[in-house]
């Protein structure tokens, strides 16, 4: 009897310990989002994938009018800057003349969800507070965001225990293999926004583009399988910029990860599945019965293959 009760006690304490750890992780992530939105910081980080490293410089600040100001620059190669003034995000890229769009976040190497309500992920991911270590000369708390099913990668975050800001991030397979990481190399938190942000506040940003209304044409193809929690956030027909190939395009998102699906007729009758991994991003392509299907996203190749195989003619004949 005693033994059983003590066992029960042990079990309950361990359960509560796990629950507490999860709660702790969640509060850490909430703090991350708050820090990313409200602090004035000036930081550098390096994105490491395969055998390449991309260095970035990132300024963030909030001015007197409570407008968020942000500059994210890629430091190697042709100039690639993203500027943000409140709800206006401007992209300065070598391929296109500078343009602005209405958005409340920058799309860059750091997932937008980290600045938003992280609890939106709770259906598909588990938050685990793991332990402490030293990163960028500071004591850091390691939080793992682990997929509840086996179809996604794990996201690890090392957060500054003082400020809650990220110091390191990594994408890890279920077997623990490191695919891609973001290592911060410098972090400075200031009371007032950096001088360059003040300049941005006064600068005039390029004209805001109004996107053409997405055509409501019936789609010929549909995806029949996706991991739980992925929702279609975009679908259109467009030409792939570089190849001029017209495609039927669908974009899915589970809150953290984006998956693009492209379908188009091909000149080849059959081509076996081919894929490359660019860091954690898989680019998969196959031709089956003259229909070319491509899947791109930060997901395991097996998941991408399953999605590609689930493409079928749209039963509803459009929507």
């Amino acid at each position: 009897m005693k033994l059983i009760s003590s066992l029960l006690l042990l079990l309950s304490t361990s359960f509560s310990a796990i629950a507490m750890e999860n709660e702790q992780a969640e509060s850490w992530l909430k703090r991350l989002s708050q820090s990313l939105n409200t602090l004035n910081f000036n930081t550098s980080f390096v994105v490491v994938k395969n055998n390449q490293a991309e260095p970035y410089h990132w300024f963030h600040g909030v001015d007197e009018t409570n407008t968020e100001l942000e500059i994210l620059s890629l430091l190697n190669g042709p100039r690639r800057d993203v500027l943000r003034k409140g709800q206006v995000v401007s992209y300065i890229e070598p391929e296109l003349p500078p343009y602005s769009v209405n958005a409340n976040h920058i799309s860059g190497p750091i997932p937008a969800i980290y600045r938003q309500d992280i609890t939106a992920l709770i259906e598909n991911y588990e938050f685990i507070s793991v332990g402490r270590s030293r990163v960028l000369g500071k004591s850091a708390q390691l939080i793992r965001i682990v997929s509840r099913d086996g179809h996604r990668f794990g996201h690890w975050l090392w957060l500054d225990m003082e400020s809650g800001l990220p110091l390191k991030m990594a994408l890890i397979t279920r077997k623990g293999q490191l695919l891609e990481q973001i290592q911060f190399t410098h972090l400075e938190i200031t009371e007032k926004p950096a001088e360059s942000l003040n300049q941005l506040a006064n600068a005039e940003l390029p004209q805001v583009l109004t996107l053409p209304d997405t055509e409501k044409q019936p789609f010929a193809w549909q995806v029949n399988w996706l991991p739980e929690g992925f929702e279609r956030i975009q679908s259109n027909r467009h030409r792939v910029t570089q190849t001029k190939q017209p495609v039927e395009f669908m974009l899915f998102n589970d809150g953290l990860v984006d998956i693009s699906v492209y379908v188009n007729p091909s000149a080849d009758k059959q081509r076996p599945m081919e894929y490359v991994m660019n860091g954690a991003t898989v680019v998969l392509n196959q031709v089956n019965n003259g229909i070319e299907v491509s899947v791109v996203g930060k997901i395991p190749s097996v998941t991408a293959k399953a999605i590609a195989d689930s493409i079928a003619p749209n039963a509803a004949g459009g929507q």
């Binding site: 709800q87 995000v89 992209y91 769009v101 209405n102 958005a103 409340n104 976040h105 799309s107 937008a112 996107l211 997405t214 956030i233 975009q234 792939v240 910029t241 570089q242 190849t243 190939q245 395009f249 974009l251 998102n253 984006d258 693009s260 492209y262 490359v276 660019n278 991003t281 680019v283 392509n285 491509s294 791109v296 996203g297």
Partner: peptide, 20 residues
């Protein structure tokens, strides 16, 4: 692959806009 990757990144950027 290169074209698809570039297009994916572009579409992700634009998706932030449409959400908004």
């Amino acid at each position: 692959f290169q074209a698809l990757l570039a297009d994916h990144n572009q579409q992700v950027k634009l998706s932030a806009v449409t959400k908004e």
